[in-house]
Design a binder for these strands. Sequence first.
DNA 1: TTGAAAGCGCTAACAC
DNA 2: GTGTTAGCGCTTTCAA
Lengths: 334, 334
Amino acid sequence: MDREKKKIRSFEVAELAQISRSTVSRALAGDPRISEDTRERVLAAAAELGYQPNLIARGLKNQSTGIVGVVVTDLNNPYHAHALQLLIEKLGARRLAPLVFVGDTAEGAESAIERLMSYQVDAVIALAAPFSSQIVRACKAGRKPLVLMNRYDGDETVNVICGDSISAGAMVADHLVGQGARTFAYFAGEDSTTISLDRETGFVKRLNENGFALSARVSSRYSHAHALKVAPELLSSGAQAVFCANDTLAFALIDAVRQSPAAAVSPLIVGYDNSALASWPIYDLTSVDQNLEEMTSLTVETAHAIVIASDTPPKRHTIKPYLVERGSTRIQSA
Amino acid sequence: MDREKKKIRSFEVAELAQISRSTVSRALAGDPRISEDTRERVLAAAAELGYQPNLIARGLKNQSTGIVGVVVTDLNNPYHAHALQLLIEKLGARRLAPLVFVGDTAEGAESAIERLMSYQVDAVIALAAPFSSQIVRACKAGRKPLVLMNRYDGDETVNVICGDSISAGAMVADHLVGQGARTFAYFAGEDSTTISLDRETGFVKRLNENGFALSARVSSRYSHAHALKVAPELLSSGAQAVFCANDTLAFALIDAVRQSPAAAVSPLIVGYDNSALASWPIYDLTSVDQNLEEMTSLTVETAHAIVIASDTPPKRHTIKPYLVERGSTRIQSA
DNA sequence: TTGAAAGCGCTAACAC
DNA sequence: GTGTTAGCGCTTTCAA
């Protein structure tokens, strides 16, 4: 008999507690003006009936739904999937509910935002989205607060939580130089987001400061198959160290080395994202960890601040990434 | 000047079209009683003002929000992440919005369902969830239609869309026997969901029918590190072929073979899920593809049917998986 | 074919 | 400290 008969409305709780609906609402909201005695009666009644307020009705009344829109691009990328999981968990901890859409094209992103607006979300989080300019525009048009995670935009009015790609690039340069490399290459992705350009910029700049230069640069789509195809070109440059825009590219490069004829000595290789695979023994890849834990925490904190007070001024935060050193950059005793 | 001044309400559209709010609502809903003339005026006015109906208000009025709750367990598992992505896309195509929660513990799953109910979701989709009994119970208590994807439950009243694990196991047995293997092992995961037990059951049964038996069985948590640790035990059995409950386990097994001393000849290995990594050259793993494309389509179709007509009788669907043959089960010419 | 009015479930301003 | 009432934006009888 644990099947509750029907949906309970605040009216029923009020009836049982011999009190008005407003008092029920206030008691449950923790309004200090309610007497201890009535509060207890209300709480007891609510518990007995298993009352759960209808958040849709509350949202309509309050002009605040507690729903946060999340726009992602590609959950097949483990990095995005992991970020989404963390976001969902952290939003949940703050009693916010994520309405999730995939926006993997410019039009898709815009229509996702429109759908979100119809649902009166309190804020939008865009996760490493290309097309950030469309998203920014759509959110401004609809006056929806936006938090851009791991992407940034010239617009000063949106919130941005972003990894420090410049310093990541520099960190990688220092590490590779320290490991004794003297010639360097960059394996680029095909996207042209500021954030991915920054990785390269930071890398090259620090190389220069150390008296070195980039001797090769190849770019590839972010798919293992494609990267595997163009990797030989990169290898033929003979660079002693390669910084890859992404772990996927790095894995493909390692595979290419293994497939290459003769016992070619592998260059030192560094990836980006520190995905699970990087720690597996077959790859054992040195990689930049963007500290998603902190990045998602700050993102959710920012979104929450907006929900609480919609006039919260825009924030910009930068997260320091760190390098996880593994075998792929260990000097090979030949 | 493309910044729309404010949120437009149906009242404003009515005013501009010189008509009442009810007519606006009807025209936009495609009510056939509205004259062609007024309909056009309304549509034009709506377009001019950029009117988007407030779905929260509509939901309150209609007792149907168009929101579907989705409960997932682990987005770090690429198989779940991919499934979620497909679900989101297909829900979107039917104008349904997914409210996503992570329920990776029994309590987490229950509280996720409760949150979803507060938001008056029209249905709940649970994705490969352990704790399905808790989820079933919570949904029944709240009278929420539930679609269980890739998990099943004794309860006849919930919708189930499920891969045919029994026949998958049989298919794998046939394949391995056909490749000449004579001794067999099973690398099990630690979950005890019916669906994962079925894989093994189907496998063993078909082996028996072919006159063979299982000569070893080892189980592991679904993590690469843990699987790598217990894999040697499995290898020491000397089985000529191993069916793994999961691609992750299969990858770990392959890695274990590579790490093993001496030029041990690898057993034939089959995985489950056909994840992206399975097709990479280093692994080149034969794996069962559960046909997520079709499974998610059917899941969303079922959810949609419920949203349209909440009294839709429960459906049970079984999806035929297929085997993707790759190098890991090719006979090695020694 | 269209309009007026009521009401979905909730909260908060305003009484008392 | 608590009740009464109005109203969030929408749809939908009911009446014309």
